[in-house]
Nucleic acid binder design. Structure first.
Lengths: 125, 125
DNA sequence: TAATAAATTTAGAATTATTCTAAAAGGTGT
DNA sequence: ACACCTTTTAGAATAATTCTAAATTTATTA
């Protein structure tokens, strides 16, 4: 693992805030002001391919990067905010119903987050 | 529903091939050679907001548009090919486990499709 | 029907996330 | 120290999508 690979891995795992490449770049620049965005993308891709981190692609906003530990996501349809949830593990029943081996699965649940719900109410009064 | 809205809705539902905006544009041009790509995007967005069609965002390739009827997707990690599957309906148990209402959910299962598996084998001989 | 208003479409520019490229820098083993 | 391989860099290139402002179409009202 190279210096930057390790740093980026740690940022993704420490700040479990579903950061974009650009946010990771900003974070990394605090300690390494000369790092370039291309390096961030290179290493994010490497880490994803190695399965050490996980890419979460979002409609209408740049990809987020997340720790690889199994968990699911609750996504606000209005503001796009991502929240971690832990729904029951579907691996066994997926394997059974598909009759086929698979690598991973991704479950996103869409809703309107409490804040956005409040805003709508306020706006409609 | 405007002319183009209806046409686009029909293309998405008739050609259940998970088309990209650009593919829909090509298809639509066959009957309406003067239509513009912006119109396609406008109407796809409107149809998505109305819940009449469904956007499927894919890592590393443009968004696909799909009929809105509930179904899940099997995605090849190598070539990106999308296949429809119908896994058990999770609505009830999600609602219960979340203790919260939600709008929809999206389940993607990643695997290596038979074709890509074959290619790898051939390459490694 | 004419006049006005509202919505839709168009073409092309703008934006933006991401990848590519080629050169520079770093590190490793002999 | 020298050749070799990997990583990093900066900036250009690419490509999907949105934006803008004008033009056209559709709907509404007098």
């Amino acid at each position: 693992m190279t210096k930057y690979e390790k740093q980026i891995y740690e940022i993704v795992n420490k700040l479990t805030g579903h950061l974009t490449a650009d946010q990771i770049f900003s974070e990394l620049k605090k300690s390494y002001p000369s790092v370039s965005l291309a390096t961030v993308y290179n290493n994010l891709n490497k880490l994803c391919e190695a399965g050490l981190i996980r890419r979460v692609s979002m409609e209408g906003s740049p990809d987020r990067y997340d720790r690889s530990a199994k968990h699911d996501h609750l996504v606000c349809r209005r503001c796009g905010k991502l929240t971690d949830i832990c729904f029951e593990d579907l691996t066994a029943s997926l394997k059974q119903q598909l009759g086929e081996d698979f690598l991973a699965y991704d479950l996103k649940v869409y809703y309107i987050c409490p804040e956005c719900r409040r805003k709508t109410q306020a706006a409609s009064i």
